[in-house]
């Protein structure tokens, strides 16, 4: 699925079918020597929508923090053909839109506008461009008109949408979401699923919500104990009861 950005300042669209993220042999241990990631290799193509599942502590969040260089372990990581290094870091951070699980951590500014504008402002864009992007991003998550609202007055569902808008305003090549449906009531969850379906972006989404995975993500990656234990079509993997049970997942 080709992605088009109609703004002149968007990074040049990559040729279709190109690799957005390529990871080879990634290892990572925390300072307390706890091994979090072991020999991870993963390649994500443009337009793919991938669910990342596995028990708590499997290393999903740690892996996500590597995708835009917040953590860096051993191994190779390329985003849009750019190797991850200090020089490429600012570009990579705008290409990979990382949304954290708790929207109260993601939304750290007093008002919605300031939060959605934070990314574009720190990319060094002009004031007019920043305003255009905030407006666009809020329209994409169906939250136009919330600019002056205070973040702490929003419902959890609204916060999650704004949290996604905070990275959409940076025109990312890939959206990386950590547990987007956690803590939502059924109606807000449904709204979020519809939103994710309609967003024309490459996605990697960590989740415990296998119903959502089945509905939205054709490809699934299962992690356990810091390793990728399965990577394939979602509907095939979800039929493999032995595999699911071995890694603490339930058939849906």
């Amino acid at each position: 699925m080709p992605i088009t950005h109609n703004s002149p300042t968007a990074p040049p669209a990559l040729p279709t079918d190109s690799t957005v993220i390529s990871i080879k042999g990634l290892d990572f241990s925390y300072p307390d020597r706890h091994i979090a990631l072991k020999n991870i290799s993963l390649s994500i193509k443009e337009g793919e929508k991938i669910a990342l599942v596995g028990p708590n502590g499997a290393g999903k969040s740690t892996l996500m923090l590597h995708l835009n260089g917040i953590l860096s372990g051993g191994g190779d990581l390329e985003v849009g053909l750019l190797p991850l290094n200090k020089q490429n870091l600012p570009v990579i951070r705008s290409l990979v839109g990382l949304v954290f699980q708790n929207p109260d951590d993601q939304l750290f500014s007093p008002t919605v506008f300031e939060d959605v504008a934070f990314g574009p402002l720190h990319m060094g864009l002009s004031e007019d461009e920043v305003r255009t992007r905030v407006d666009e991003a809020l329209a994409q998550v169906d939250m136009r008109g919330f600019e002056d609202r205070l973040s702490h007055h929003l419902s959890t569902g609204q916060k999650k949408r704004i949290a996604i808008a905070t990275v959409l305003s940076m025109y990312p090549q890939i959206l990386v979401l950590d547990e987007p449906s956690a803590g939502l009531d059924p109606r807000a969850r449904r709204g979020l699923i519809n939103l994710l379906r309609d967003l024309p972006l490459t996605m990697l989404v960590s989740t415990h919500d296998l119903h959502m995975a089945k509905e939205l993500f054709p490809r699934m990656v299962i992690m356990d104990k810091g390793q990728i234990v399965a990577d394939g079509e979602t509907r095939v993997l979800l039929e493999d009861e032995a595999l699911l049970e071995k890694h603490g997942l339930e058939k849906v």
């Binding site: 951590d105 750290f108 720190h122």
Partner: peptide, 22 residues
């Protein structure tokens, strides 16, 4: 611990020690 996570969220959106505001 929350301040750590917020710091990561800021880094992810291009913060590098210099805050910009409109």
């Amino acid at each position: 611990e929350r301040s750590d996570r917020i710091y990561y969220a800021m880094l992810s959106r291009g913060y590098s020690g210099h805050l910009r505001t409109l």
